[in-house]
Simulated assay, not measured.
Amino acid sequence: MKQYLVERPNGNVIVTILSNKSDHTYSYVNLTKGHICPCRFASEEEALHDMDQKIKSGEILRYILLN
């Protein structure tokens, strides 16, 4: 399981991207807060692209692959 440190203006979190068994989409799982994001992506790559867009919008500062 790949984990990412996501640096945000309001605090850092550890996030992973996991497959949803019900519909085979992917979602962010915030391991720091124990929260599953309701957003759905067709692939892990699409989820990472979404994080890249969040960097451009300023919602997050950056993300770093931890393992």
Rank of each mutant, 00 (worst) to 15 (best):
M1Y: 14
M1S: 15
M1V: 15
K2D: 15
K2C: 09
Q3L: 09
Q3M: 13
Q3W: 07
Q3G: 07
Y4Q: 10
L5M: 04
L5E: 08
L5H: 03
E7F: 00
R8H: 02
R8S: 02
R8V: 03
G11P: 00
V13Y: 01
I14P: 00
I14Q: 01
V15G: 01
V15I: 13
T16E: 01
L18E: 12
S19F: 01
S22R: 15
S22N: 15
H24V: 12
T25W: 01
Y26N: 03
S27W: 05
S27H: 12
S27V: 01
Y28K: 09
V29N: 04
N30R: 04
N30I: 11
T32N: 06
K33P: 00
K33I: 04
H35Q: 04
H35C: 00
H35D: 02
H35N: 02
I36W: 01
I36C: 00
C37E: 03
C37W: 13
P38L: 09
P38E: 01
P38C: 12
R40T: 12
R40D: 11
F41D: 03
F41R: 06
F41W: 08
A42C: 05
S43I: 01
S43G: 01
E44Y: 11
E45V: 14
E46I: 07
E46H: 13
A47E: 07
A47M: 14
L48T: 06
L48E: 07
H49P: 01
D50G: 11
D50I: 11
D50Y: 15
D50A: 15
M51I: 08
D52S: 11
K54V: 02
K54Q: 12
I55C: 01
I55G: 00
S57L: 02
S57E: 11
S57G: 03
G58R: 09
G58I: 11
G58F: 06
I60M: 10
L61A: 03
L61I: 14
L61K: 13
Y63Q: 08
Y63C: 07
Y63K: 06
Y63S: 08
I64C: 06
I64M: 05
L65V: 07
L66Y: 02
L66M: 13
L66T: 02
N67P: 11
N67I: 12
